[in-house]
Nucleic acid binder design. Sequence first.
RNA 1: GGGCCUGUAGCUCAGUUGGUUAGAGCGCACGCCUGAUAAGCGUGAGGUCAGAGGUUCAACUCCUCUCAGGCCCA
Length: 1079
Amino acid sequence: MRFAPVPADEPADVLERTILAQWREEGLFEQTLAARAGAPSFVFYEGPPTANGKPGIHHVFARTLKDLFCRHRAMKGFLVDRKAGWDTHGLPVEIEVEKRLGIKGKQDIERLGVEEFNRLCRESVFTYREDWQRLSERIAFWLDYEHPYATYTNDYVESVWWALSTLYGRGLLYRGHKILPYCSRCGTSLSSHELALGYQDVDDPSVYVALDLGMVSGAVVDDYADMPGRTARRILVWTTTPWTLVSNAALAVNPELTYVELRKTDSADTRTIIMAESRAKAVLGDDYILRWTWVATMKGADLVGATYRRPIDWLPYPEGTNHEIVVGESFVSADDGSGVVHMSPAFGADDYAAGRRHNLAFLLPVDARGQFPADLPLVGGKFVKDADAALIEELKRRGILWKAGTLNHSYPHCWRCGTPLLYYARTSWFVRTSSYKDEMMARNAAVNWNPPEMGSGRFGEWLENNIDWAVSRDRYWGTPLPVWMCDADDEHVDVVGSYADLAARTGAPLPEGFDPHKPYVDAYTWPCRAPRCSGTMHRTPEVIDAWFDSGSMPFAQWHYPFENADQLASHFPADYIAEGQDQTRGWFYSLLAIATGLGEELPNNANGTASPYRNVVVNSLVMDAAGKKMSKSLGNIVEPWKVIADHGVDATRLFLVSTSKVWEPRSFDERQIRAGAGRFLLTLRNIYSGMFARYANFGWEPSPLDPRVEDRPVLDRWVLSRLRSVELQVDDLLLRYDATAAVRAIIAFVDDDVSNWYVRQTRGRFYDVSSPDNRAAFATLHEVLVVACRLLAPFAPFVTDWMHRELVGTSVHLAPYVRDGRAAGDVDPALERLMDAVRTLATLGRGAREQAGIPVRQPLSRLVCVAPRVSDAALREMLPVLAAELNIKTIELATSGDALVTLEARPNFRALGRKFGKKTPLAAAAVTAFTSDHLRAFESGSELLVTVDGETHGLGPDDLTIVRRASGDLVVQEEHGFFAAIDPSITPALKREGVARELISRVQRMRKDAGLAVSDRIRAWIAGDQEIEDAANEYRSHIAAEVLAHALEIGGSIPPDIKTRQGVELDGLYTELALTRDD
RNA sequence: GGGCCUGUAGCUCAGUUGGUUAGAGCGCACGCCUGAUAAGCGUGAGGUCAGAGGUUCAACUCCUCUCAGGCCCA
């Protein structure tokens, strides 16, 4: 068999596995790379997954997207060598190991020993690697899994060290503070992940204090005469952590909010109080208007710069800092409190950030156990939370307590020991990203984001508000921070940039099997080289954020700068990356922050607008069938292997990409796979197996005998023009990273143009090798299928490869995506428009038949039609196609002169709007009112005038559209200026022809029921009413040919031994049909 | 609380710079075909374009607010 049919009796899963095995055997991926050796590169970066936990269906989606653009570019002729990678460090790995060991928290780890713990982490990293690799291969995500990078390897870590030391050398790595949730009992800060485990509802103090203002809007506030040392205006401040008032440095208001100043009515105390207007009711009571008098209203911005007196003044402020001022901050809300927030930079993230912005005093009067220093009055040596009561008393004593109550709210506690956490400034290492924020934004602006708003909106906003990147982590399993500090003076710092560098510092070569991880690396020390310093350099204990690892992959995957400078030069920056939108602050950021920080230390990176990636496709989540997020607790996780087994990878990939724009969340509904992608693949297979292969196998194969395209029938030329249009359109869409629109265009073409129109109209030409234009039909459909396979290959890589090999003998993945112009021929837009018109007329004609109740089987004599914007001459050539489709003898094109046609005018609002403005509706009404005669005259050149509001305007052809309508006795359907009108009268001759077709149809059905092969010859009998026999006689040879009858007996009696026989009623007439095989 | 996105037929989605009657597939109903047949095809029903204001001669489209959903960040 020249063209094998697609095996139909086995699930897609089986066929796909067979193809996979073949790919593996042939080394097809390697072949595709070898075929592009020396070609220009298309650089793809694999965002390394953490091989910790099994891949889910959303990974199938993300990996399909990664793969399909790489596949497309490879077929386009680029060299797309893509390295697999694994993210192997970080908290997720540690937690996985903790779980397995049944331990939790840093104390348990220290007890077990860091050496053992990290050994287990290293082992655990690849627990799921096999799962990932197997699934990735199964879904045809082509990557170089033979030479992957892994972030824990010595080479990788050394490159990351190089990056960190380079940043240090550029003054971009520094030690500072970071506010972290901290457990004072366990002596450790917690990750956000741990934080989420320990929220509890508790009662906390809710305290308002009224603080004296010293200066507002540059004017000194009057003293309050009745109370010495106090002023006449106060500002109301709220806090739930009174213990932080000890370290108060500033107040914050929201510049956008409205604040109100009030004085108590009928009170001896004439001092005023300022708070957010919208909080007055909540703070002062619903009826506060009765008891308080309005004094002034102001914006928060008016308060910025005001000075006040702090509540507790035990601690001196450091020199050169700002304190006791009001600052403006957008994070201040009017949802609770007074709209004025107390700032204590050591004890809150917002406070700390504001502190840095405004150079606020930084007071940290709390030790690692969460206690105040012993020498403080009242609270010395107390755990801070236990000091609240005493502090409230003190506030009262000072006359500044406004109100004290309790608030029940959700507050984080240590998930291990239940101690309330403190937000606490911890020493941390930072990359000074804020110093090159503008450059990051400039580079980001050069990135082609899909969707664009992800870059300008979400990511752009994030960059706009960039703060320094805290890269250190108080953990164990990660790239160790290559920073050594002197134990005598922590200003003496060495940052090591390579292993050779480390060896040089210690003065001895590194041992065989050197491991840069904790705890081994911590053992390396050396004498401090600072002048007159006798200290010893010890490594700072932290490891780094695993995002710094993955953000270093462009160079670290090549062990740059220690080797492979040439590889990096040709693989930086990336042309394309694709990840989920949750990576905005993850990988998208770390890549940009590191590449920008390193600047010209990386190749092709000096230009201030070069981004580490040129094109990004952001994909969204995959929801369950009901649109809910998938989660283990809901039990609605979709298992990818099950989906693949049921539907195959081709259908799954097609479904995921085609169902909605890739950055919009999609619901994963298996019924939709079957109904959409599955059905489409079935149609494609039917065209190939059921039509092309089945009949081509009777003797056609590509040869020089096939007629040239220009000599083929119009349908062939049309479908080839459409093919070329779609080919160019899909390629363009993929070049612009719109996978959804691309795949939809292919699906629409195959379903609608090929299956629904071309194949259906052309069927007769396939059946018989000797029929006219038979070769043209096969050559055309062959070309269509070959190109359709190529266009679909990035989306459905399996079945397209199978078919492509049958069609031309080679893998589709080695084929070019777009044919060269000469081989493909040109698009013929006029022809495509024309066929559109014909198809519209066919629809209308069918509608008219439906309306008249006459089946297509019954021939009719006449159809009159109109198709606007198509030349009559061209349309006339297409009429045979239309006539065949509608089974109508003659088709006429109506002209304006026809009595059958009346003309109507439709206003063109766009044109009229420009001319008439507000009077457009009147002009439109006037246009609609033109009579047929007016319009005929207009068509033959005379002027058309409308008078609106006394003004007369001449109309041009653009101002209106003339529509022809049918009138008279015909059955009419019309739409958008097209109409088709059938003459429903059935003459006796037409009736006989209809009967003949009916007889053919019945006999064919009998053949099928009798189990005859399509090529079997028969002997047939027709005997019944005279009218039927007359019709049969008239069309005897036609009937005989259609049903493959050697002999056709009409009339008389049917021999009784003929088994296959049937009585039939046609419109009240009776006949008996019989047939037998006759070879 | 902030940022971004989404809301169009029972379901999944199109809808170009505002401009004639808002489209498609699936599903449904009815029918055709019986040489793609555990296939192929047609016709039809079904929509106050989430809601409320506004701009405009004209709004699914632009603006504001509200509601609902998603993601990220607080």
